[in-house]
């Protein structure tokens, strides 16, 4: 279980997280929604330790995220970044097998390459992309390579940062289905941040809406449409009028 308790983070005068509380049960898929600049990415990076919160506690399976063996902690996670964040200087298979080529999970090169190609197949890419450089791939293919990298070491927890941003609706659907299939297949805990309501409905078991630095509403995805929360209603229906200011 991932638990955020009264997490606060400010950048100068910009108070991004103002006491965020959230629980993500083990093996479930939580999608965090909210407007641009509401701190969704900050929350995710706080869990990973990429950003240090000003106060509050974050625990993963009862262990404080800021204490203990950092490598062992990070080995539990896979992450799909918004832009893919593939390493330009490495080939596709070396990107996918990055964790398997070094560190505590190191495998022989041939074995790591085979695992990388198998993971590429799992996300619908043929083996012939393995030796290409990321710059030679389309945006959708880069996202799939990023997804293959996120699952290469079979992590217990997978984070998805805006997985469908910049993709056409068909490719978005493909990525959403892949994420759902992989999360179910691996039994992983998933945390996704997105604005894309089709992603929310395809990926989520539970939904949390972040607004003004706190969780405005959280509950099962099936309850989302009948929540009665005016902020959530405005967001999921994409209305300009409502309690959330259109110009922020």
């Amino acid at each position: 279980m991932i638990k955020l308790d009264n997490v606060k983070k400010s950048f100068g005068d910009n108070h991004v997280l103002r006491g965020m509380d959230l629980e993500i049960p083990k093996g479930s898929s939580m999608v965090i929604i909210g407007g641009s600049g509401t701190g969704k990415s900050v929350a995710l990076k706080c869990v990973l330790g990429l950003i240090t919160p000003d106060s509050g506690t974050i625990t993963v399976d009862g262990q404080d995220a800021r204490k203990g063996d950092r490598d062992a902690f990070l080995a539990k996670f896979g992450m799909l970044f918004q832009g893919g964040a593939l390493f330009d200087s490495l080939t596709v298979w070396q990107n996918v097998a990055f964790r398997l080529l070094r560190g505590s999970l190191k495998r022989p090169t041939e074995e790591a390459r085979e695992i990388a190609i198998e993971k590429l197949r799992r996300v619908g890419l043929k083996a012939d992309v393995a030796d290409r450089l990321p710059a030679e791939l389309s945006g959708g293919m880069q996202k799939r390579v990023g997804l293959a990298r996120a699952i290469a070491a079979e992590p217990e927890i997978i984070f998805f940062d805006e997985p469908t941003t910049g993709l056409d609706p068909i490719m978005s659907g493909v990525i959403n289905d892949l994420i759902r299939e992989i999360v179910v297949e691996m039994g992983a805990t998933a945390m996704t941040i997105t604005h894309d309501m089709s992603s929310v409905r395809a990926i989520a078991d539970n939904v949390a809406m972040l607004h003004n630095g706190v969780i405005q509403w959280t509950g099962p995805v099936a309850d989302m449409d009948a929540s009665g929360d005016p902020h959530l209603d405005q967001f999921i229906h994409g209305r300009a009028e409502g309690p959330i200011e259109a110009v922020r």
Binding site: K45, L48, G49, L50, R70, D71, L74, A75, F77, G78, M79, F81, Q82, G83, A85, L86, F87, D88, F98, R99, R102, G103, S104, R149
Partner: peptide, 16 residues
């Protein structure tokens, strides 16, 4: 460029 494109964050999440 690696920092701007989150490649450095990716390195950290890959325990590097």
């Amino acid at each position: 460029t690696m920092k701007v494109t989150e490649q450095i964050d990716a390195l950290v999440t890959l325990s590097t």
